[in-house]
Amino acid sequence: MTIRHHPQPDTLMSYASGALPGAIAGLVACHVSICPQCAGSLRRLGLVAGLLLERVAPEAYGDDYARRAVHRMHVAAAAAAMAQKKPKYQPSDRVLPIPLARYLGMSGSDIPWQSVVKGVQQYWVTLPKGAGEIRLVRAAPRIRLLAHSHRGMELTMVLRGSYRDKTGEYHPGDVSDLGEDIEHQPKVTSPEDCICIIASEKPPRYSHFLARLVQPFMGF
């Protein structure tokens, strides 16, 4: 898999510092899990964070505190060694990247797709309050989605198939990290269905007034 489109550097930086909205962080984690280049970037950003941490002026506590803490570590480590480890979920196919598959406890073939309009299906991922939104979208060949722009961040990652918009063509692993100002209208270019993860800080803004009217009902 050759990945050509990556999250923006400022997006990766905010991921490394833990400051991204939960939904966006989820998509970045999915991309990083299959992209050695971004994994390397993240490692370097981790070095930056580590260097800065080393320079922080400590908020001290007493020596006795450390001794008691070490004792607690022994106790806790023994307890942890005895506790049964829950095996991590292993998806039966490779459609969903590991972070999302583990979060959902679901493989690609288990996704309960809901039909939105002919040729378009989606599945909303339930997230904690304040995280933003993640949905999986599956669109049939040649489907063109409604033109829209975004309020806040929106990232799309292709899992299967491909689509094109005015910013380029996106294949599996690619991430589109568009700003608020860009309006786009993705069109599926693959002979098979295109499956994407779309993560947004806030719901998208549709250009057409009719789409704006039906948006709340279609949840699209």
């Binding site: 833990g18 962080a25 899990s33 580590g50 941490l53 972070p99 997230l127 904690p128």
Partner: peptide, 30 residues
């Protein structure tokens, strides 16, 4: 690098406890 591990672990714990958000990759997965 140890300092960057320590940072990452603390970041994930903060995401979970303070921000009450999903930790998508726990430290060992990352």
């Amino acid at each position: 690098n140890m300092a960057s591990w320590i940072y990452t672990i603390a970041r994930n714990l903060r995401t979970d406890r303070v921000r009450r958000q999903v930790v998508w990759q726990n430290f060992c997965e990352e």
